[in-house]
Design a protein around this nucleic acid. Structure first.
Lengths: 358, 358
DNA sequence: ACTCTTTCCGAAAGCGGTTTCGGAAAAGAA
DNA sequence: TTCTTTTCCGAAACCGCTTTCGGAAAGAGT
């Protein structure tokens, strides 16, 4: 005799079946719409299940069916301290979408001393998740190398450099930055500097490429000292701006890889007594709400993070259901949000004067 | 004969046992440190398990053990559009801490047309979670009423008004705002206005109380029109500030329920041509990094969200392991972060003059 | 050499569902 | 009415792991 677990009073299919005078199998099939159960029986079972508040144990169901309707999301190791606000919104959208298909979202962190792939491997091997969504993609990403071999469905928010054998949804970062450059050039700027992020992260790389390619197209010289990489926080942004201000041929506009960097830049400029949006224009990327709260408002390229999360969720579930279909690979465009931080450059004659004239 | 599921090639305990020439039971007990297994057998099993990359299926384990090492977190219904940055950090800390005890974090959203308690109920009944962490607590919170009856472990970040029969961890919001007021009074302010949030949310209520109580203590009159409730976004903050500026007895300082509101207020003030930190001082609460990025830097009360998440995670696991121990109820203090937005009020003589003199 | 303990492992019964299979009862055909 | 189909449900075998129980093998005691 095994133990006598005295399982709690939760309503099980056994109890339900006894209550109805039916076999467990019949009840199960009734609840799962099998064609060989009489309609009135189905109705009767449904009713009783509702009344008794029966919910099949997902654990048991998973064991029997051998599938896990849970997708995993591994929080990127916190490089700084702060979680990306963009990620929070994606998570929200993801959870919302998954709920619609009755899937769950398992969020995991990477413990000190481990890496992301390790965490993902454990999640898969222990059968906790049946799919993955990953974000903050690197140009070449070991997580994706791993997932390719793992044969479980996954969708990438962003993409790697070689990305034709898996599903992804990305913002067209390159085009966005070409557009942003177009906007600045349209305003009359030619001397445009760039504050870029970690070039290993693919989005940063793509945006950088967009900047460079547009600069070439429009004949804007990227002077020595105009292009800064690795700007990932406030401090770095300030230093970079300080450098730019000392530049013999001071730029009239600064394009920034993210809103966070742009805000840092604006702060640094303001601190140096520069009127942002007049003496120097600034453009960011993200469309964070705080871009609206600062002064001047931040002109930026906005992306719909929440919607990205939802779309990614939809795709991953589709993929889990449709075994070997095509990989959906989707490119979304960012939209320009014009606020006060980017305007035509100050006319040359007054660049040396103190007060800027509009 | 049942189906022939041709289960995938995952290493199961059965295969491991066969490989070792042992019974499944023995292998299981060996891996779980039962005292009745020879040490060398344990070693042998461990080794083989490692080599073959065996990980027990958590699904099967759960079913057999009848426990679910997963805690649920229901994302608060998105009142606005944006997820609270504070929450994101808590989630991060929570996931990190849970990972240490091999627990999982299940994040759920509330689908349109449903409410949070419903979602929680489904998660419990279907056995997906074995505990909860909840945040954004209301003064009186239906989620907690529900959980009290549910007999599953849970920890609240924040607390309700009657809160002695469950575990919680809260910031001492009242004291924080008393301290903030003390700071302002110490700087010389007496005419201090307050921009409060949704008074149903307990933290907003507590902060409001702190403001009022300190105002009384220090003999600061809370004039008609000084106290604004329900300021939850940028727009509301701007309107409120506009009102304050029209006030016949204009306040010299504004205390704000959150950093977000404070930043909105600063923006509005700047827009109106007021020098923040000279003509009018502003204090916020949260310690968001963006408070550092704006100009002037936001003086604020900081709370360590990530640490809150970790602590809450630790508590909920403890509680799940120690059946009927005491409820831990913890109060943390926020710390004052002084930046540029709060300074002594401008001397009376020059309040009518144009340029502020330091 | 022969009990009495210990030590260590196998057998087997679940956990709560799902799914295949076969067959009794009901319905249709002859 | 009798034979053939259908319709509908019960029986039973898992899913992969845990845990109790009993007993064979090995060591200890005399």
């Amino acid at each position: 005799m095994p133990r006598a677990p005295q399982r709690s009073e939760t309503m099980s299919i056994a109890r339900l079946a006894k209550h109805l005078g039916l076999s467990e199998g019949t009840v199960s099939r009734a609840l799962n719409n099998y064609p060989d159960i009489a309609d009135k029986t189905i109705a009767r079972v449904r009713k009783a299940a509702d009344e008794l508040g029966y919910r099949p144990s997902t654990t048991a169901r998973r064991l029997a069916r051998g599938v896990v309707e849970t997708i995993g999301f591994v929080l990127p190791a916190r490089h700084g301290h702060q979680i990306d606000p963009f990620l929070a919104e994606i998570l929200d959208g993801l959870a919302t979408e998954l709920a619609l298909s009755d899937w769950d979202l398992l969020v995991a962190a990477v413990p000190e001393g481990h890496d992301e792939v390790e965490v993902m491997d454990r999640l898969i091997r222990s059968g906790k998740v049946g799919g993955f969504v990953i974000a903050r993609t690197r140009r070449h990403d070991p997580r994706i190398d791993y997932l390719r071999k793992s044969h479980i469905p996954f969708v990438v928010q962003g993409r790697t450099e070689d990305c034709d054998d898996y599903a992804w949804l990305d913002i067209d970062n390159e085009k966005a930055f070409i557009d942003a450059m177009g906007h600045l050039v349209g305003l009359g700027h030619r001397k445009i500097a760039y504050l870029g992020g970690d070039p290993d992260l693919n989005y940063a790389w793509q945006r950088r490429s967009g900047y460079l390619s547009a600069a070439k197209t429009h004949g804007c010289d990227v002077l020595d000292g105009y292009l800064h990489d690795g700007i990932t926080d406030e401090m770095a942004a300030r230093h970079a701006v300080a450098d730019l201000l000392k530049h013999p041929d001071r730029p009239t506009a600064i394009l920034c890889v993210t809103d966070a960097v742009a805000i840092g830049a604006i702060h640094a400029l303001a601190h140096a007594g520069i009127t942002v949006g007049e003496e120097i224009s600034v453009i960011g990327f993200d469309g964070l709400p705080m871009g609206e709260a600062i002064h001047p408002g931040l002109t930026t390229m906005s992306q719909a993070s929440y919607q990205v999360g939802r779309a990614v969720g939809r795709i991953v579930v589709e993929q889990a259901n449709a075994p070997a279909s095509e990989f959906s690979q989707i490119l979304w465009e960012a939209t320009l949000t014009i606020r006060g931080s980017a305007n035509p450059p100050a006319p040359k004659l007054v660049t040396n004067a103190k007060g800027g004239i509009s």
